[in-house]
């Protein structure tokens, strides 16, 4: 009873931490200076989401999130970054505001 309660407390604490980290990672992914870092953080976010799904007793979702959300989406985004940047004449990593590459 006590152990269970204790376990619950510990796990809840883990959940809290995970929640905070999730939010922080998401914030990093969304508002990072460079897009590349944002995408990398997004992949991390995906993996953390997978953890969260586990915590929500949804292992299927955890698998899917890891494979699809983090893995594939990450790959797609990274590939896209590479292409979008590779053709910009100005080789600036800080493309947040350089939305339109100069010709």
């Amino acid at each position: 009873m006590d152990g269970e309660a204790n376990g619950m407390t510990i796990s809840l604490a883990f959940d809290w931490v995970l929640g905070v980290v999730l939010v922080a990672t998401a914030a990093g992914a969304l508002f990072s200076k460079t897009l590349f870092r944002g995408v990398v953080l997004f992949v991390v976010f995906g993996l953390l989401m997978a953890l969260a799904w586990v915590r929500l007793q949804a292992p299927d979702l955890a698998l899917a999130e890891a494979a699809i959300g983090a893995g594939l989406t990450g790959a797609l985004l990274l590939d896209a970054i590479g292409h979008l940047k590779s053709r910009s004449v100005t080789p600036s990593h800080n493309d947040d505001d350089a939305v339109k590459g100069s010709t």
């Binding site: 299927d60 955890a62 899917a64 494979a67 699809i68 893995g71 594939l72 790959a75």
Partner: peptide
């Protein structure tokens, strides 16, 4: 019977293909 299924499997396969392609 347990966690897993077409989507997860498909995406793993796709991931493999992406890696090969890359």
């Amino acid at each position: 019977t347990r966690p897993g299924g077409a989507f997860q499997a498909g995406s793993v396969l796709a991931g493999a293909a992406v890696l090969l392609r890359l």
